[in-house]
């Protein structure tokens, strides 16, 4: 049972970690919480759903669709909420991301209807049992994919030129500009990357839970935000750690205390860290 809870936690944590990274990449470069992350997750899920429903029952194609959708949404949010509002109080951009979130949920409701849709399972056969815990192949697939994406992002940010640009903008965008880095383009890239990560997470999550609906990203987005704060909003490794830890803590919280307390656990962590250690477990004061 302990093993099962751990596996449940790691699976759920993979989704949290992807979304937490989406928050962290964007917060890193702009010190802005993108509250449209949950809605982007939802839109990614719908893109995946449309793909398997109308094009091909292929999860990889669905993930590609989620990625592209998320990427475009991130790009668009940056153009509207950030670029056109440059120089206005930060709060305007923040509110604008909330507006985007509402807007996307409404659009999805209008286009697809409020009814929950069924997302088919993939690789749903039992892979193995371990200490009484059942693991299906899809869980391994989900965890593996998430870890791969997280590693790729890690490489992108810490080993490439574009990543160096993102890190410098995150540390000091003015100086970065003076060094010849195109700050606008870098911010735009960070938003697209964050969006793409959320979009893929949407597909992975919807296949795991077998459902797609316009509000599926709300709680997911909120919890991942907690996870990101938990690990350190300004640290990519921190966000990953936060995602996994939050899910594992929640799952064991359910086991030890009760299901009714699971959200409370998440939000106590959020408030606790915001109050006493705002930079989270791994966040440095000013680093991505």
């Amino acid at each position: 049972m302990i093993v099962q809870q751990l596996i449940n936690g790691i699976t759920q944590g993979s989704i949290f970690a992807l979304l937490a990274i989406s928050f962290a990449v964007i917060y890193g470069v702009l010190r802005l919480v993108n509250f449209a992350t949950g809605a982007t997750y939802m839109m990614g899920a719908f893109a995946g759903w449309l793909t398997v429903r109308y094009i091909s029952q292929n999860i990889f194609l669905a993930m590609l669709a989620g990625l592209c959708t998320g990427w475009s949404i991130g790009f668009l949010i940056e153009k509207v909420a950030i670029k056109s509002l440059r120089g206005v109080a930060r709060i305007a951009s923040l509110i604008c991301t909330i507006g985007f979130s509402i807007f996307m949920i409404e659009i999805a409701t209008v286009i697809f209807g409020a009814e929950t849709k069924a997302m088919p399972s993939f690789f749903n056969e039992k892979a193995f049992t371990l200490g009484g815990a059942t693991v299906v192949w899809y869980q391994l697939f989900l965890i593996g994919t998430a870890v791969t994406i997280l590693l790729l992002l890690q490489i992108l940010i810490f080993k490439t030129k574009a990543g160096l640009a993102i890190r410098t903008v995150s540390l000091d965008f003015k100086t970065a500009g003076l060094m010849g880095i195109n700050v606008d383009r870098t911010i735009s890239l960070a938003f697209s990357l964050g969006g793409a990560t959320a979009g893929i997470a949407g597909v992975l999550g919807s296949v795991y839970y077998n459902i797609v609906n316009p509000t599926m990203g709300n709680l997911q987005g909120l919890k991942s935000f907690s996870a990101a704060v938990f690990g350190g909003l300004t640290s990519i490794p921190g966000a990953i750690l936060g995602g996994y830890l939050l899910a594992i803590v929640e799952n064991f919280g359910v086991q030890i205390v009760s299901g009714g307390y699971r959200d409370i656990i998440g939000f106590v962590i959020l408030v606790g860290f915001l109050l006493f250690r705002p930079r989270g477990l791994l966040g440095k004061k000013t680093s991505l």
């Binding site: 049972m1 099962q4 809870q5 936690g9 759920q12 709300n218 709680l219 359910v254 086991q255 959200d263």
Partner: peptide, 20 residues
Amino acid sequence: IENYFDGEKDFTAILTKLRA
């Protein structure tokens, strides 16, 4: 007896506990 709140999408932890 276990409960969950509105909007929850992940029931695996609760189910694992109930199963026991």
